[in-house]
Design a protein around this nucleic acid. Structure first.
Lengths: 337, 337
DNA sequence: GTGAAAGCGCTAACAT
DNA sequence: ATGTTAGCGCTTTCAC
């Protein structure tokens, strides 16, 4: 591999000048810079990140911890982060850290704390007290996306309020028989998200003086397939059916819509459905939802950290509340009477 | 940050012994090792990856290049890679490199070639001749997953044969009016995949003496939504409808199934559908498919590279053909006459 | 505007 | 079994 020495020799200058020239630092004459760049290119020289990381103390890499890369929310956040990092010429180290147990502890130690990154962005994760402490002692900028964690800056929607707004919309249409699809996200472990949304649902119901039914508080595992099965099972039960469903995510809402199809229940005639997210598939299904923008959340999170590192405009920015707005589509309507 | 010196001082040994002890090398007495490990833990010492990377020449990181992280295939491969890397204590650097253009060239240069990784695994990508050359000159182990690229080792199913088998199955059920959903994958750019599958479809049709119709060769963009729209449009057309559809991916096949629902076309009564993949959703939809296992492909790819690096059993392994097998479910049946 | 030299924090020979 | 020492390939003072 060609090293900086090779370039220096070939250009007849010192390695210091090569270093400056290639990084665009001042105090190098334009002529020399051009020449050095040409020669470096010719030789196929690329600086070693280990060496410059060691010498400068900056790795030009950002760590991203996520409990899953297959779920839409995480994936979309990651894409947003990626776009911001690319603009800054930063690389992304992806730590796919499952909830608890297993090698979580090991990965945390051997990898995350290994000074391979300049900053860390956590997506949809809870941290234990010990982990939080280690992160802080690591001393590099950290932010959390999706679900607040005590003591760590975060970006996310106001879970409870958003859920409340979704439920209120159903109520405003005239629904009173409303089921809720919640449930934990096995992979991620930020339990604050489903809990907050559930609270929001209950808030709205209570404020409207509508009683909830325990057997209509379903658990959909944040998955289309599970939700579909659960709602199919609900439709199989004797007795009254809900006229509306509020699901904690669009994927689960779509699962409910498919279950309705499975049972010949028409939407929105017999059943209204609302979700949270604005998933890629939602438009095609005509799903009404509280739309949020995880791509932007990810991108913003990365930009904040980058600015922390370089003293940019967003530097030292505190937690930010992301927005979610009601997106009316075809899956909601007043109940048929 | 505590460095190896701190640990050495605190333990009263040399830094060399600390290094050995912590890495589990021989020639350290069990007693000293225990003691050093305890002290290191206490001090919160974690080796700097830049420093050890520079000194040892190994970064303990693997690069993964993928054109998308949101598509099921890529995501699943990445999860497979991740599991193998975790076992080996390797980190993953994710390069989300869109097809061509944009900053592809820049990312390629400034990041991938920056010696941040020990090996590189590319998922569903084509490379230009120049890129291939640069990769080779980089000199570290490389493998490609999903779609062959000249001159680079790869892992993948035999696209053409698998598509042929899927089509033959429809034919064996008695279908003759078969549509094909193909089309390029915008994000990835390995055009060999859709081309191979299309060829396989045509092979089977031709071998059975069935003529194909150009207006039944659809383009579904490897996306559920696009495919659904395209098939809805097909059903809107006057004239005969196909009795079966072979789609290049399960996502597109499911899109077709939803379009059938949209049009009141019953499956498999009026229409049989077969895909390729065995996507997470496929079981729930009862979709017959040529099941492949991208998780395993990713994991195997990573293990091969890891073994290349360490001289393990899979070292220097050549390209491997992944398997895909017919998985019969409810979406296929003989045509109604 | 450019060069010399001192590290950055480790690993790997080579001693002992 | 442990210590000494010479780098790894850069960045960054400090001179000039």
């Amino acid at each position: 591999m060609t090293s900086i020495d090779d370039v220096a020799h070939a250009s007849g200058v010192s390695i210091a000048t090569v270093s400056r020239a290639l990084r665009g630092l001042p105090n190098v004459s334009e002529a020399t810079r051009q020449r050095i760049q040409g020669i470096a290119e010719e030789l196929g020289y690329v600086a070693s990140s280990s060496a410059s990381g060691l010498a400068s103390g900056r790795t030009l890499a950002m760590g991203v911890v996520a409990p899953s890369v297959s779920r839409w929310f995480y994936t979309t956040v990651i894409e947003g982060i990626d776009s911001a990092l690319r603009d800054a010429n930063y690389d992304m180290i992806l730590y796919n850290l499952a909830s608890r147990g297993g090698d979580r502890e090991r990965v945390f130690h051997r990898s995350i704390l290994r000074k391979r990154t300049d900053a860390l962005i956590a997506v949809g994760m809870d941290f234990t007290a010990a982990e939080r402490e280690q992160l802080l002692s690591l001393g590099h900028p950290t932010i959390m996306i999706g679900g607040p964690v005590r003591g760590i800056r975060h970006i996310g929607i106001e879970e409870r309020g958003v859920a409340q707004e979704a439920t209120e919309y159903l109520i405003s249409l005239g629904h009173r028989d409303i089921a809720h699809i919640g449930g934990d996200d096995d992979e991620g472990l930020n339990r604050q998200v489903p809990l907050g949304r559930r609270r929001g649902f209950l808030d709205a119901m209570q404020a409207a003086g509508i009683s909830t039914r325990d057997d209509w508080m379903m658990s959909g595992g944040f998955s289309l397939t599970v939700s579909r099965a659960v709602i199919n099972e609900l439709f199989d039960r004797p007795g009254p059916r809900p006229t509306a469903i509020f699901a904690n995510s669009d994927e689960m809402a779509i699962g409910a819509m498919l279950a309705a199809m499975d049972h010949g229940v028409s939407i929105p005639g017999d059943l209204s459905v609302i979700g949270i997210d604005n998933h890629d598939l939602s438009e095609s299904f005509g799903l009404t939802t509280m739309a949020q923008d995880p791509y932007e959340q990810g991108s913003l999170g990365a930009r904040i950290l980058l600015d922390d590192l370089t003293g940019g405009p967003l530097s030292r920015k505190t937690s930010v509340r992301a927005t979610a707005r009601l997106l009316r589509r075809r899956s909601t309507a007043p109940p048929q009477r």
